[in-house]
Amino acid sequence: MSKIFGILLVITLAVFPKDAPQIGQPAPPFQGTTFDGKKIELNDFKGKVVLLDFWASWCVPCREEMPFLIDLYNRYHKSPFEIIAINIDTKLDNARKFMDQLSENVRFTVVKDSEQQIPPKYQINGMPTSILIDKKGIIRFWHTGFKASYKEDYISEIDELLKE
């Protein structure tokens, strides 16, 4: 009987989700394809400060965040800074429609992840999640959700990472 309990315990523990990567740890690598059809890897951006953002068109705070990401890109695109926005819409047309409605074109990297392979690597616990990765590929700041009051924090954190 104890064998059966043991087997059930192992199976139960095996299906538990993995721990999320912590601040100070290397960002889990991933590969993806952008909406333009380019293949990218997170490692391609080593040497740059990366803002990794998980978003979807069905997520209200993500929709509110997107114009701010465009502002950030406009402000920092001449610096070693890149935004990688991971879109997790299962219907890609919804994401395209949303981006077309924005007052300005999205010029940063938007990865399509309709099969939602990348979020489990980071075990995000809310949408949107924005993760700031330094030039060495280390996770330095982590934001869950979006409010207008967060904007100043993002800017000061990016400035800090760019100075390093």
């Binding site: 979807a56 069905w58 819409d89």
Partner: peptide, 30 residues
Amino acid sequence: KKLILMGFIFLWVWLSGCATVRPWERESLS
């Protein structure tokens, strides 16, 4: 003992049906 074991297995199967919906899986719920 058999009854306890069966009860435990039933409970395990029943509880394992409870799943956490992760944030990226909430498209339909939204």
